[in-house]
Amino acid sequence: MVPVQWYLLLAAAVFCIGLFGILTRQNALLFLMSVELMLNAANINLVAFSAYWGNVTGQTFSLFTMALAAAEVAVGIGIILVLYRNFNDVDVTLAKEMRW
């Protein structure tokens, strides 16, 4: 059995790659992809500890997290669509106010 530390390291790396994307990118689509990476890093942890402790709660909960990620993407894509219609761009730094 692979030591759980390696799964945690992988999850930390994936999470930090997502965080790096959020901190350095301005494209809304890349933002969305970065958030997905961070969510999936949490999923890796849930599944790793589920297998480690021999309990299916973590794996079941990771399924719900995936569903939540799908919902988030649906709304996120809608928001990006509106952003593009108003600014002809998906640069998140263009929208500086709550209304335009």
């Binding site: 799908a70 919902a71 988030e72 649906a74 709304v75 894509i77 809608g78 928001i79 669509l81 509106v82």
Partner: peptide
């Protein structure tokens, strides 16, 4: 809710 929101936005 997300499905409805996405349709409303798009």
């Amino acid at each position: 809710a997300a499905l409805v929101a996405a349709v409303l936005l798009a």
